[in-house]
């Protein structure tokens, strides 16, 4: 672990937290629980491509734990963790198939996976299988939100290509 990367991860985590907290303060766009943009995901994606798996994992975990504390919604911790871990596993497994120009596609797949993870957690927590009916909506919202956040991360990464080239594998 280089000091520089460590500091960068810390800054990115702080930024992700700010994004997460602001987003949590905005009233939900739809009456369906669990639909949101997930801007914090931009930072996870960025860290994954720019810094590597270990740093991205640290960022994600810290963001989920601290985010749950900051927004005061401990219940959402379980949902965030389920969705976050599942989508992150998918992210590191598939990363090598997606070059920089296709980051947004990886983001879409991860966002859908994230929503599926949250749905599974919700089914487990509330013990009601009927929630599975929300799957189609959550897939659609995952695709839209994932494309948006993925594109954000991708554009930043491409602008910083020169800088990230040395680390990008």
């Amino acid at each position: 672990m280089k000091i520089k990367n460590l500091i960068l991860t810390a800054i990115l985590t702080a930024m992700a937290l700010v994004a997460f907290t602001i987003e949590a303060a905005i009233p939900p766009l739809t009456p369906i629980y669990g639909i949101k943009l997930g801007i914090a995901n931009v930072f996870t994606l960025f860290a994954l491509y720019a810094l590597g798996t270990r740093y991205a994992a640290a960022l994600l975990f810290l963001r989920i734990v601290l985010g749950s504390i900051f927004t005061g919604q401990a219940v959402s911790f379980i949902y965030s963790l389920a969705g976050g871990v599942l989508s992150f596993i998918l992210m590191i497994l598939l990363k090598r198939f997606f070059p920089l120009k296709q980051v947004w596609i990886l983001s879409v797949l991860c966002a859908v996976m994230h929503n599926i993870g949250q749905l599974l957690a919700a089914i487990f927590m509330t013990a009601t299988v009927q929630i599975i009916y929300y799957l189609p909506v959550l897939v659609i919202s995952g695709i839209i939100a994932g494309a948006f956040t993925g594109l954000c991360a991708q554009l930043v990464l491409m602008r910083l290509k020169k800088w990230s080239d040395s680390r990008y594998s």
């Binding site: 596609i105 879409v108 799957l135 189609p136 909506v137 897939v139 659609i140 695709i143 494309a147």
Partner: peptide
């Protein structure tokens, strides 16, 4: 992806 959106809709 777009066919997935349509199927889900």
């Amino acid at each position: 992806l777009s066919s997935a959106v349509i199927v889900c809709a």
